[in-house]
Design a protein around this nucleic acid. Sequence first.
RNA 1: GCCGGGAUGGCGGAAUUGGUAGACGCACGGGACUCAAAAUCCCGCGCCCUCAAAAGGCGUGCGAGUUCGACUCUCGCUCCCGGCACCA
Length: 878
Amino acid sequence: MQQKYNPQVLEREAQRDWEASGAFCAIESADKPKYYCLSMFPYPSGKLHMGHVRNYTIGDVLTRYYRMRGHNVLQPMGWDAFGLPAENAAMQNGVPPAKWTYDNIAYMRTQLKSLGFAIDWSRELATCDPAYYKWNQWLFLRMLEKGLVYKTTGAVNWDPVDQTVLANEQVIDGRGWRTGALVEKREIPMYYMAITRYADELLAALDTLPGWPERVKAMQANWIGKSYGVNFGFSYDGSDPTSWKDGQIPAATHWPQGGRYPPQGQLKVFTTRADTIMGVTFVAIAAEHPLAEMLAACRPALQPFVEECKRGSVMEADLATMEKKGVPTSFCVTHPLTGEKLEVWIGNYVLMGYGEGAVMGVPAHDERDFHFAKKYGLQIPQVIEVPGKAFSTDAWQEWYADKESGVCVNSGRYDGLGYGPAVDAIAADLAAKGVGKKQVLYRLRDWGISRQRYWGTPIPIIHCPACGDVPVPDHELPVVLPEDCVPDGTGNPLNKRAEFVDCKCPRCGQAARRETDTMDTFVDSSWYYLRYACPDNTAQMVDQRVAYWLPVDQYIGGIEHAILHLLYSRFWTKVMRDLGLVKLDEPFRNLLTQGMVLNEIYFRKGESGRMAYYNPADIEWSTDDSGNRTVTLRADGKPVESGGIGTMSKSKNNGVDPQELIDHYGADIARFFMMFASPPEDTLVWSDAGVEGAARFLRRLWNYAVRFKTGGGPAVSPDLGKATRFEIHSVLKQANYDFAKHQFNTVASAAMKILNALDRLAGVNNDVAKEGLRILLRLLYPIAPHISHHLWRELEFGADIVEERWPEHEPEALIEEEIELVVQVNGKKRGDVRVPRDADKKTIEQMVLADPAVQKFVSGQPVKKVIVVPGRLVNVVV
RNA sequence: GCCGGGAUGGCGGAAUUGGUAGACGCACGGGACUCAAAAUCCCGCGCCCUCAAAAGGCGUGCGAGUUCGACUCUCGCUCCCGGCACCA
């Protein structure tokens, strides 16, 4: 046995052992309960970062633990391989995205292997593989048949330089994140997935997921945004002179019959406060509303404002802070219940994408309408009253919008009704007139999946001049993406590929154009967890093996996917269920969102105000004689400023490269530190000293094992042996409780406690030391598998620790002849007492009262009562 | 503004879920070994009072409450982190 712990050598050996025995290949089998442990697959960006290491270590700890617990465990791995960074790298280096991606995958795979994760590599998949994305296309076509995919034209962020749609996250201060160009709102045709059809189930089924964090469920519920209200219409007639405040009917050419908005009709609105309908003084519509466009055509004076609104960012957070502005249009609509004429305003605070893109304005009982009315001098009539509170138009009061205690006033026949009854009565009256009804509305929008990008799944559609948009027939799938394109930043290179674009219409055989948009990469990740069950099936998307492995028993990933990926995946699962492909309502039974990895930030402010960030590894701390600390850059010895602690990121230059860590310390030390430093869901602050501490522990363990193998040392007294066993088994009992809670930091500390206890034994060649070490190695194995694997064999504890059962504490070891009880007087600890294990309460009471320390505090006062908590403490109340 | 989560030593964190607050580790201080250093090992380490110790007092963000007993439960605040946000 080597005298020195040499992780690099023994880790490579252990990994070779596992690979040779195929230890982690998962095979469907009915004789054990299955456990599907899944970590969110990485984007192959180049190399692993610390977040990956933490994520996959958590998954690996669970995987190895449940395997030893007797489960049939699957832990697969794959690559979320399509996406923008590959195209950007291609533009910088002239390398095709495909090559860049495959090279990154090869490197990152070796990194994952060097961390010793118990992954079933036979199931590896990459989403850029035609054998995978074929099924994106196939399911897209099934959804198209069912009407779950449709094409329509909607407002999107358009980057005029890159010639593509940008996601909201890619627009920073109204500019493209890469080009810096002002982003335009554009109306372009896109394919949408009808996720809103599942809005209700996606919301309701959150209650069936007790294994998900509250905050993730809250975020999804928020995102889906269900509200109950009334949808109704204000009737209008553009040809009626009394509909125009200025009495001027616009020329018919401006409002043509058969246009996008008819001259007569209903202007629809949605409201959750139908009880305030008698307080409506105006109607506001979004600048993008078809009526606004029509009115702008009629009244050129409106055009500048409409243009201004449209130019604004699509970012909803920006809208929230914008000043409320509007213009009156002179056009009037009719109140459905009072018949009153109300002027239509175009307002910048009305969102086209929610409800009808038009709202009723009730200044007295809606805060936005209140400020709007004050600004433009509109009437503010009170129609809701809270007893004892005085209404005034001077300033907005919270209670004006209180629907719990508010009651209708100045509302004719609705006076005196509370919120619920008033809404019922008003909805009934609107329905009777045929102009409105109750409606449930969702904030969730359908999912636009078209991207004007090259490196993604081709959308399997052919545009035929004669037949229109024609689906690619199933037998022609997959539509293969050419892998040798190099994007140059001027739009989708597929458009320039004649051999890709030019094709024959499957329906009529005429020359046609292939769709060049690709799918959002979130499509790829919406079902990969199903494909791991059957990655080799070339004939079907999924097969019966999915029924064996799914649902995922434990999913692990970052909180940043709380909405997008996790909502899309739930949606796809339900779609596939309704298409009869799987029998599954929800894909992920338990979800663990791991905390971020943080590190210190150091910077200098340059003369131009530009920040220069320095990696903490290049920083030196020093303390002078008077105890003042200075922080300097090692390279030039000059001071730098501390920027506190933040997420490891490229922009703050405070990342720690996992590869350097592995090269220097080995995988076990890296894994042990990450698990020990904080619980999985909390943030983890990087600490070089902490890593050193982990290294110290594993070295101590190694040295102990060397001594154990050599033998020797003094004999162990029966008392010490018994006490040590007691300690080890109580630590083990607690560790098993912690493991069930996924609190791995205390499991790691339990391993340390056991080693400390064994160290105190001094003698090593005895049964207690052997028993303790056998427990310790198995407890440590999920966290630091290499050293545990190696020592298990080296010490001849068995052929392979992988095949061992998980250790359980022995209750017999926890039985003591005498137990120590804490003695309290009036709830304060005043000493302790040793009593026989089977002493009854009366005996204990007498022993305690006889104790001189207790007598001192009781000091003659009458004893009211004595509380004995068996095995724990005695409290004397005086 | 709404929703979710927090607040425990110099630091990361623990506390069998109402029963000895501060486990385990880091940092720090002292000592051993060494020519010396590194490594390793031993001791100490919440705060106050005290030369020191004993003894005592205080102590889990703040204020009340329930209880023999509260980091833990209840009510009312403060602050911090995260998410969403003109959603009609």
